[in-house]
Amino acid sequence: MKLPGVGVLHTFITDDGGKCGVITHRSGHSDLITFSDESDDKDVTKVSLRLSEDEAHTLAELLGGTRITESLSALEQMPGLSIDWFTVDYDDHIAGQPLGDLSAKGVVGLTVVAVVRGETANPAPSGDFRVFPGDTLVVAGSPEKVAKAFAFYRSGALKHATAVAGAVDSPPGASALPRE
């Protein structure tokens, strides 16, 4: 609901009958409120909490982060899938380098889901996306391939755990091909 000269009011009623709202002011701050209306005949505690723009973003991340964390937890319970975070240090091989294409280096079936830089997520980065110290890479793949990627990001070398020396990782159902 628009509040002329003030901003916008968004409200909802919780499952237990509580009334909650957020007033987003034109100035950038927000008010988190609980309230009652005339039809309420019970004693209701009213709360109003003023939040700066940064505080409102933090609260939104905390509330929304729960769903994201639950979704990631559910994904991580899938057999053969690992989702992990790699924080780039100054002495890591990948620091200052483009992300590149690990499949061209023999690690097939691994995805860099996002690169988080500060408070900004860069989803599905391309191979030419340059990675810097402090960045966090969110990687998904089999546990073995995630470990290989992390080893490469740290040292620049790929350690092959396959029985054939120098064999290239292959997609499921394909045979391993020797490196040239």
Rank of each mutant, 00 (worst) to 15 (best):
K42W: 05
Y90H: 14
A151D: 11
L32F: 09
S36V: 03
P133N: 12
V138R: 04
G5N: 11
K19T: 11
T11C: 13
D128F: 09
K46M: 09
A56W: 03
D92G: 07
A124C: 06
G80D: 06
D37P: 00
P79Y: 07
A114W: 02
D135Q: 02
A60K: 01
V115L: 06
L177H: 13
P178T: 05
V44T: 13
P133C: 12
R67F: 14
E70L: 09
A104F: 11
D15N: 15
G64S: 04
T69H: 11
F35C: 03
L75D: 05
H57T: 14
V107K: 04
A124G: 05
L81E: 07
L32C: 10
R179G: 07
E70G: 06
L177P: 03
P79I: 07
S103H: 11
V22L: 13
D54H: 10
I33D: 01
L102D: 00
G141N: 01
I33Y: 01
I83H: 04
G134V: 14
G18C: 04
V108W: 07
G109P: 00
Q77T: 11
T69Y: 09
S126K: 12
G65Y: 05
G127F: 00
A163S: 04
E38R: 12
D101S: 13
T58R: 08
A104P: 00
T111D: 00
L63N: 07
V88S: 09
D84I: 05
R26Q: 13
G166W: 02
V139H: 00
A140W: 04
F129C: 08
V6W: 08
D101Y: 09
V112F: 05
G100C: 03
V168H: 07
L62T: 12
A95Y: 06
V6Q: 09
V164Y: 02
K145F: 01
T11G: 10
V88M: 04
T11V: 15
H57S: 14
I33V: 15
A149L: 03
A161K: 00
H57I: 14
G18P: 02
D101Q: 13
Q77H: 09
V107F: 06
Q97D: 02
P79M: 01
A147Q: 03
E180S: 14
K148Q: 14
R117N: 10
G106M: 04
S155C: 01
S71D: 08
T14F: 05
A149S: 12
T69R: 12
I68W: 01
V107P: 02
R67I: 11
T34W: 06
S30C: 11
V108K: 15
S103F: 06
G7M: 05
G65H: 08
L51T: 00
N122L: 15
G7K: 02
